[in-house]
Design a binder for these strands. Structure first.
Lengths: 121, 121
DNA sequence: ACTCGGTATCGACGGGTGTCAACATAGACA
DNA sequence: TGTCTATGTTGACACCCGTCGATACCGAGT
């Protein structure tokens, strides 16, 4: 039941507005919003994924080739697996250019997480 | 060899400074920092926990009794289990006052997560 | 002391997740 | 065409995690 249809994740192109959510101090999350946001937090809940994400985000030009960030102490298939999860959760987007695949962060999605955790009263 | 030792995870009492971390756009996370931050993200990676956290954060007075927030569609033991995880990850603190137990958010920890996701260039 | 309501812990079950080796796919270039 | 390099996919494995019912713990009244 729970999982059934989940949200579909239409790839959310990097510029799309992410309506969710006001700061958590201002109002409680609806079950649906909680479901959506939890997916994003889950994407960053693994140390390896967090490092991959951080490597992309901090890379010059705002994007990085897999070959630039793959050195995180796990096998290549595992890196690929984690990048896929980050992509599916909407935090990263990828684009193939010739031999290499480049990843960059989806700013609006990350901004939504940051805004939600903003605690100013 | 930097400030290194700040860590230890001594249950982090609510007021403690959380040195981690600069915005992810500015530098890549160290493996150790990634490990620490992943714990916090993991705490918010479940829809039920996210709702509980949001209920505490948005509650009048900045704190809430378990009885005020327990209605999230799962059994009481499960609520207790999730609140424990939020406590252990440092996002919430709890205090018993008479019959009831009150939870409130640990502002510095949440602020660290928000700051890390701040994307301004 | 006893009971009662609020909260935490225990033990078990089922599904999810990170990891790897092996294999598949996609461009580039000879 | 064929080979080489970069990346993704598959299948299998061990482990983690969310959930529940049963039970224990803790204060407050009676």
């Amino acid at each position: 039941m729970s999982k059934s249809e989940v949200v579909e994740l239409p790839v959310l192109d990097a510029g799309a507005a992410v309506p969710c959510c006001p700061p958590i101090t201002s109002a409680e999350l609806s079950p649906a919003d909680a479901e959506r946001m939890a997916v994003m937090f889950k994407a960053l809940s693994d140390p390896v994924r967090l490092r991959l994400f951080s490597k992309v985000a901090s890379h010059a030009g705002g994007e990085a080739c897999v070959c630039d960030i793959a050195d995180v102490g796990v096998s290549q298939p595992t890196v690929s697996h984690h990048l896929k999860k980050l992509r599916e959760s909407g935090l990263l987007t990828s684009e193939r250019r010739g031999t290499w695949v480049y990843y960059k962060v989806a700013p609006s999605v990350v901004a939504a997480m940051s805004a939600m955790l903003d605690l100013r009263d």
